[in-house]
Amino acid sequence: MSDCIRLEHVHKSYGTFALQDISLGIKEGYITGLIGPNGAGKTTLIQMIMGMVRPDRGDVQLFGGQNKEQVPAVKERIGYVSDENIYYEQLTVKQMKKVIAPFYSRWNEDTYVKYQELFRLSPGKKIRDLSKGMKIKFSLAIALSHSADLLIMDEPTSGLDPVFRRELLDLLTEHIQDEKKSILFSTHNTTDLDRIADYIVFVNDGRIVFDEMKEALAEKYLLVKGGKELLDRDTRRLFLGIRESAHGFEGLMGNRAEGERYFKDTAICETPTLEEIMYFSVKGSELRV
């Protein structure tokens, strides 16, 4: 199994914020979700992959080649969907398409027309007048029409209604029916896209917390709910993050087997959701600072 994106020891700092020593491989043929709270560095990471932001140190490789961007061939295989509008707002949908199409040798006008109809994009409408959801649909139509091998989407669902979010899942799973196509998306809302994700990369505060197969997370993490009397100096150390209330505590452990050994009989042990993993990890790391 090969990687379509490789980051090696990438650093980038902006004043107070820094991405630190990011090494990461995105698997070809699968869907990878990049999750993390706002400001964790997800967008910077994606923009670095897209060649918009230059790393201070380290290497970004796309499809096995160095992205020194003498290789437009690499970009041609990427479809980029951003949560902010990157198109010329004063142009109409049709004009914008006319601008974009000639840059891609694999552009397929029929496919574009198909998606334009499916998404109900009116060609005469100005980009400026499109709703956020429509803008996302437009960039998706563009990406799918030049048959990108790799879809890179930055917070694609943030402006979408639940109905289209579901439709998007269909479009994306359809896209990877071809085992050579891959998807990387970022989101801070872990309840929609992650159901189809094969791999999850979790970033927090400029660092990678984990990069795992989603299936493996359930075997690694454990959510423990119990009375506060269970918490003492030693047991606290076992947790990645704890939330205490008047009536007990909830805590996340990173070693499921160990956790079950300690708490199986005295507390409730559950498989955490991604959101819970995210919440407790962020909470825990804030405490340690």
């Binding site: 437009p72 010329y88 707002e89 840059f103």
Partner: peptide
């Protein structure tokens, strides 16, 4: 001006064209 007005330089850089 139009290239820098919104995020249009991002669009340009996302195209399969070297800078």
């Amino acid at each position: 001006t139009m290239d820098v007005q919104q995020n249009n330089q991002k669009f340009l850089v996302s195209l399969p064209v070297p800078r």
